[in-house]
Design a protein around this nucleic acid. Structure first.
Length: 418
RNA sequence: CGGGGCAUGGUGUAAUGGCUAACACGCCUGCUUUGGGAGCAGGUGAGUCUGGGUUCAAAUCCCAGUGCCCCGACCA
């Protein structure tokens, strides 16, 4: 991609009311645009990151046997009356011209349970895991902190269906592992902790995946020993101990919930009479689990964790591009070499953003640091004299020269390692 | 939903109740420039969130509304 053709330029300044790191950097670097509080557009750079995150999630969920579907965002009132959740204040409600009452989906148990009921009749049809990556609407009283709490946002929601509690609990553990794998690949593994939380209208307890960041909206009580946390909501009503080791010395940290998983058991199966016949021909309720990840929030959390004073430092797997190519002088020879290398990388399917703009080098470097692509490749008179290009990793201070003839080999190793 | 703050060209800011609302960045034209947001010259762009009020006179004071941000509550 030629940077001169890229939609949206970087900005030096950002509206002063934007305080959170993720919104400042993502707005300045041109990844997103704000339409209103809690509602954002994703621009080419931002969408590329979002798609990369989706890819990571899909890969990890396919590994645990989940199948992707896509459910509607527009829901009829009846499904929500079944579960007594039509009254939930987070639901945006509207009316069709003919007077039909509709709601915009903020979660999908009410839709997927009757869907699954149409097809699951026997123990032979179980277990089953279905997920979607789709838009959710939540009428939040207070959208906040850029991408961290939106009113409209993309969510991955997974639902699993089981014959026995044991099978459900096994799958629940599998999802935990898959989630940690997802967060690790997204570059927030070290800052993300499993946290015991309330189950809301779903279940008694749930587990959250909380990423430590000063702009988070939750306080979690962290046990240093077990590396697990307890949400403040639970601490308030129960006790102050680690639920694993009993440790009473818990550290309070601000964090953002990037994932939440629930053991629903029979709850929704009962509402919709979702049953199956077991081997003995006995009718039983299907047991369910549900598992969510908010994608924009995850993206925001990634920025909160991976940045420095100059800009974003994207982890390689979810970076909008792998290489940021910059030519220092507009001399014909240098431009020509840069163009050749650009084509070479494109042909090798290496994702490269080529800064071909007629800008000063300083400006290109500043934008490069702000945008945060993992590898910066500079082509200059200096490097060409040594038949080399200069490569600097975004997170490192120093650059190194790589011979042009070794370039592809070097990049392939580097990119697969990261 | 309770509390607090803010609202002026595209962006960031300035402007004792009083002159044609100023400056920087951006953007456009031309020339020059290219290792860390380059230089010169010329140009473009707002009537100050909306509605009312006070006043000879309002960006500025008062009232209401709206929007945005922050703290709290809520949080599936």
């Amino acid at each position: 991609m030629y940077q001169s053709k890229l939609f949206v330029k970087t900005q030096k300044e950002v509206p002063k009311e934007e305080v959170s790191i993720n919104s400042q950097l993502l707005l300045r670097a041109g990844f997103i645009d704000k339409l209103m509080a809690g509602v954002y557009s994703f621009l080419p750079l931002g969408l590329r990151v979002l798609k990369k995150i989706e890819k990571v999630i899909r890969e990890e969920l396919e590994k645990i046997g989940a199948q992707e579907i896509l459910l509607p965002a527009l829901h009829p009132k009846e499904n929500w009356e079944r579960t007594n959740r039509w009254g939930q204040e987070v639901m945006f409600k509207l009316r069709s011209r003919s007077g039909k009452e509709l709601g915009l989906g903020w979660t999908h148990e009410e839709i997927i349970t009757p869907l699954v009921k149409k097809f699951v009749k026997s123990y032979r049809d179980l277990p089953l895991a279905l997920y979607q990556i789709q838009v959710k609407f939540r009428d939040e009283l207070r959208a906040k902190s850029g991408l961290l709490r939106g009113v409209e946002f993309i969510m991955k929601d997974l639902y699993s269906f089981h014959q026995t509690l044991e099978d459900l609990e096994n799958y629940y553990e599998k999802v935990k592992k898959a989630y940690f794998q997802i967060f690790k690949r997204c570059g927030i593994g070290k800052q993300t902790f499993l946290t015991l939380a309330s189950g809301g209208t779903f279940s008694e307890y749930s587990h959250e995946f909380q990423t430590l960041t000063p702009f988070g909206e939750d306080f979690i009580y962290l046990c240093e020993k077990c590396k697990v946390g307890i949400n403040q909501q639970i601490i308030k009503e129960k006790n102050y101990r680690c639920y694993q080791c009993g440790n009473e010395k818990l550290e309070v940290k601000k964090a953002i919930e990037v994932g939440n998983i629930f053991n629903l058991k029979e709850k929704f199966a009962r509402y919709f009479n979702l049953t199956f016949k077991d081997r003995e021909g006995k009718e039983k309720f299907v047991l369910m689990g549900c598992y969510g990840i908010g994608l924009p929030r995850l993206m925001g959390a990634i920025v909160e964790v991976n940045h420095d004073e100059k800009g974003i430092c994207w982890p390689i797997e979810i970076a909008p591009f792998q290489v940021h190519l910059i030519s220092v002088r507009e001399k014909r020879e240098i431009k020509k070499t840069a163009q050749t290398i650009y084509q070479l990388l494109e042909n090798q399917k290496i994702e490269v953003l080529y800064d071909d703009r007629a800008k000063s080098v300083g400006e290109k470097f500043v934008d490069c640091d702000l945008i945060g692509i993992p590898l910066r490749m500079v082509i200059s008179e200096k490097s060409l004299r040594k038949k080399s290009v200069e490569i600097k990793e975004r997170k490192k201070k120093v650059a190194r020269l790589i011979k042009i003839k070794d370039l592809l080999k070097f990049l392939k190793e580097k990119l697969s390692l990261c």
